[in-house]
Simulated scan of single mutants.
Amino acid sequence: MVADLVEWGALERTPTGLRLGMRLFELGHLVPAQRGLRDLALPYLEDLYETTHQTVNLAVRHGNEIVYVEKLVSRGRLVPHSRTGGRLPLHCTALGKAILAFSPPHVVDEVIAAGLRPITSKSITDAARLLSDLAAIRERRVAFDVEESRLGMFCAASPLVNAKRVPVGALSITGMDSMSTARRFAPAVLTAALSLSRRLDA
Score class of each variant (00 low, 15 high):
residue 94 A to T: 07
residue 91 H to R: 10
residue 116 L to C: 07
residue 176 M to I: 10
residue 170 A to Q: 11
residue 119 I to T: 14
residue 92 C to I: 04
residue 180 S to Y: 06
residue 145 D to I: 02
residue 38 R to I: 02
residue 5 L to P: 00
residue 19 R to P: 00
residue 174 T to C: 14
residue 187 P to H: 11
residue 40 L to Q: 14
residue 6 V to I: 13
residue 119 I to S: 06
residue 152 G to T: 14
residue 68 Y to V: 09
residue 110 E to I: 00
residue 180 S to N: 13
residue 9 G to I: 02
residue 124 I to P: 05
residue 96 G to K: 12
residue 80 P to F: 10
residue 155 C to E: 11
residue 8 W to Y: 07
residue 144 F to V: 12
residue 27 L to A: 13
residue 196 L to M: 09
residue 53 H to Y: 06
residue 5 L to H: 01
residue 198 R to A: 15
residue 146 V to P: 00
residue 161 V to N: 11
residue 28 G to K: 03
residue 145 D to H: 02
residue 105 P to Y: 13
residue 140 R to P: 00
residue 2 V to Q: 04
residue 166 V to Y: 08
residue 118 P to Q: 12
residue 26 E to C: 02
residue 24 L to T: 06
residue 140 R to Q: 12
residue 60 V to H: 04
residue 12 E to K: 02
residue 200 L to H: 07
residue 189 V to Y: 06
residue 109 D to G: 05
residue 96 G to M: 10
residue 99 I to F: 04
residue 90 L to V: 06
residue 107 V to M: 13
residue 48 L to N: 12
residue 71 K to D: 01
residue 108 V to D: 10
residue 118 P to D: 13
residue 31 V to W: 02
residue 198 R to I: 00
residue 170 A to K: 10
residue 48 L to D: 14
residue 128 A to C: 03
residue 141 R to W: 01
residue 16 T to K: 09
residue 131 L to N: 12
residue 32 P to V: 07
residue 86 G to L: 08
residue 130 L to M: 08
residue 30 L to G: 02
residue 115 G to Q: 13
residue 122 K to E: 12
residue 3 A to H: 02
residue 179 M to Q: 15
residue 124 I to G: 07
residue 42 L to V: 02
residue 183 R to E: 15
residue 22 M to P: 01
residue 175 G to E: 11
residue 36 G to I: 01
residue 193 A to C: 07
residue 62 H to W: 07
residue 67 V to M: 12
residue 105 P to I: 13
residue 159 P to C: 08
residue 13 R to G: 03
residue 121 S to Q: 09
residue 43 P to R: 07
residue 128 A to D: 15
residue 69 V to K: 01
residue 198 R to W: 02
residue 160 L to H: 12
residue 198 R to D: 14
residue 123 S to T: 13
residue 75 R to N: 10
residue 27 L to I: 07
residue 113 A to G: 06
residue 42 L to Y: 03
residue 112 I to E: 12
residue 197 S to Y: 06
residue 169 G to S: 08
residue 69 V to S: 02
residue 154 F to Q: 15
residue 57 N to A: 04
residue 68 Y to L: 07
residue 44 Y to R: 13
residue 136 A to P: 00
residue 96 G to V: 08
residue 126 D to K: 09
residue 139 E to R: 13
residue 180 S to I: 09
residue 173 I to N: 04
residue 118 P to A: 11
residue 39 D to V: 04
residue 113 A to Q: 15
residue 4 D to S: 04
residue 131 L to P: 01
residue 33 A to M: 08
residue 167 P to E: 10
residue 127 A to D: 14
residue 163 A to H: 07
residue 99 I to Y: 05
residue 125 T to E: 11
residue 65 E to G: 02
residue 163 A to M: 08
residue 162 N to L: 06
residue 85 G to S: 12
residue 22 M to A: 15
residue 98 A to S: 15
residue 89 P to L: 07
residue 70 E to G: 05
residue 86 G to Q: 09
residue 49 Y to D: 04
residue 85 G to K: 11
residue 194 L to T: 10
residue 123 S to M: 06
residue 124 I to L: 15
